[in-house]
Write a protein that binds this DNA or RNA. Structure first.
Lengths: 101, 101
DNA sequence: GGTGTTGTTCGATAGTTGTCGAACAAGGGT
DNA sequence: ACCCTTGTTCGACAACTATCGAACAACACC
């Protein structure tokens, strides 16, 4: 099965934003931004593994992450460079909003 | 009725992103970013006025816009400065993504 | 080959959301 | 006073989404 990791230019902005507009997924993205590559199982945010798998699929299909097999695990990483090139400042703004209004 | 325009610091990031993650609302925001203040009726993007009113409410309650009465109309404007202070680069990135991947 | 680990997929379900028409409210103009 | 314009609110409805347990698949290791 192909991983279905789309070209960033082909993904509507609304799809990217919708992918980020969820608490669990935002925590995943935050963890990836800080810790680099990680296995799916490392994202234990109080949801079942079925739900986790679903969220990772949403992120992947929105072009936010890439996944590669590594034995029985799968390693997920953020497509930081590509995202920063297409949406400069978006990830920074979303991941660490300024305390000022 | 109070307009329910929240303090930006009190709105979760996911709420802001969810508000932007809709095609009609993004068109409204884009129009506001380019044209400044505008009446609700000026946003005719193929939806009924009930739907339009709903979208404007979502934007307002997410802290993206302010609304003030002006006769029988209402004038809507983008909270650009506040948003740029709290989420630097977000609006720019969302409103005009680079063509490069 | 069997067992355990790691993820994915498949229903099912409850909650949310986008959409509409119709009814309502508030002003302005004549 | 009457009407017209402009928006909001109220059900209603369809579509989507987040969530789960259970079943399945792939791989490693003993």
């Amino acid at each position: 099965m192909e991983p279905h990791e789309p070209d960033l230019t082909g993904v509507p902005v609304t799809t990217v934003l919708a992918a980020l507009a969820d608490d669990v997924r935002l925590q995943i993205v935050r963890a990836l931004a800080e810790g680099g590559e990680a296995t799916c199982g490392s994202f234990d945010f109080g949801v079942s593994k079925a739900t986790r798998s679903h969220h990772l699929k949403v992120l992947r299909e929105a072009g936010l992450t890439r996944t590669r097999a590594a034995g029985t695990s799968r390693l997920v990483r953020l497509r930081r460079d590509e995202l920063d090139r297409r949406y400069p400042g978006l990830l920074d703004a979303v991941l660490s909003p300024r305390p000022s209004a």
